[in-house]
Amino acid sequence: MDCCVIVFSSTHSAMRAEKHLTGRFPVTVMPTPRAVSASCGISLRFPPGDAAGVRAAMEELPGERGCWEIYRLAPDGKADPIVPA
């Protein structure tokens, strides 16, 4: 699997993000990958090409600042954080 995931510090943030992103991006709810340590077990998966768009959409939620992070998941299961340029 080669995709991106957005992980959260709380389930509240995860479910808020799901509502905010669904319909705008092809997000899939999935359990947080083992390679990523995050407080919340709910993550959202989406295609790598949408990373910039998802980031911009999440920045529309000031109340969620600092509560989420985007990772790139490689086929071998390794996860690398995507840091904005």
């Binding site: 389930t11 995860a14 479910m15 799901e18 899939t28 709810v29 999935m30 359990p31 709910i42």
Partner: peptide
């Protein structure tokens, strides 16, 4: 129920 709905999606994904 919202958490339960997310859990159901995650169950079938897994």
């Amino acid at each position: 129920p919202e958490l339960g709905g997310s859990l159901m999606k995650m169950f079938f994904y897994t």
